[in-house]
């Protein structure tokens, strides 16, 4: 009986840990640091596609666990929640690119919806339209589209209400100084 209680306590702890740790995927090669700073010691190099557990988020950093043994910090944008299969695809030109983008498209559900008969292609593309350099330069201004675009404009009240409904709270954040790249 005593051991049964001990076992259930252990199980409870595991469930609690599980509620915090979430499956995540390294989406681009990342350094795992000892602390949330790139000045700290590098523990490990993680390859694209590595599955990890996300434990904590702190600013632009995420604390992760790898192989159920090593914990450390990686830049938050290099880890995405969920189990993502990232395939390296070969292009004819010889270059490789990861299919993170096609994963995002699939996740957005818009591309896949074309199969269900709904398609954004409903707006027929008339004549030479498109956003290549040449097409941009020679486009005929479409004022009917402008009128349509303006009909969707929001306003002060509507935008504020929508922000509130989405749990968005305005915060006073000061602008940052110019970086060297801007000079």
């Amino acid at each position: 009986m005593k051991s049964l209680i001990r076992l259930s306590v252990v199980l409870l702890i595991f469930t609690a840990l599980d509620a915090h740790a979430q499956t995540a995927t390294i989406i681009t090669q990342a350094q795992m640091y000892e602390n949330p700073s790139d000045q700290s010691r590098v523990i490990k190099q993680l390859d694209t596609g590595t599955q990890v557990s996300e434990i904590l988020r702190q600013g632009g950093w995420k604390k992760i666990e790898h192989d159920a043994s090593i914990t450390g910090w990686v830049r938050s944008h290099k880890v995405r929640q969920g189990s993502i299969v990232i395939q390296e695809q070969k292009k004819q030109s010889g270059g490789f690119f990861s299919s993170l983008a096609s994963w995002s498209r699939k996740a957005s559900g818009l591309f896949s919806s074309e199969k269900k008969g709904y398609s954004f292609q409903r707006t027929a593309t008339i004549g030479v339209r498109g956003l290549s350099e040449e097409q941009i330069k020679h486009a005929k201004p479409d004022y009917k589209q402008l009128d349509k675009m303006e009909s969707f404009r929001s306003n002060n009240n509507s935008a504020r209400l929508y922000a509130k409904a989405g749990n968005l709270k305005a915060d006073k954040v000061p602008h940052m100084p110019k970086s060297g790249a801007e000079k």
């Binding site: 339209r129 498109g130 956003l131 486009a139 201004p141 589209q145 929001s154």
Partner: peptide, 21 residues
Amino acid sequence: SGLLGAAPLVDNEPLQQYVNK
């Protein structure tokens, strides 16, 4: 209007209203 002439709006009101808000 020139850019809209190159590529028109996606014909989907909920999407356009969402992005506008």
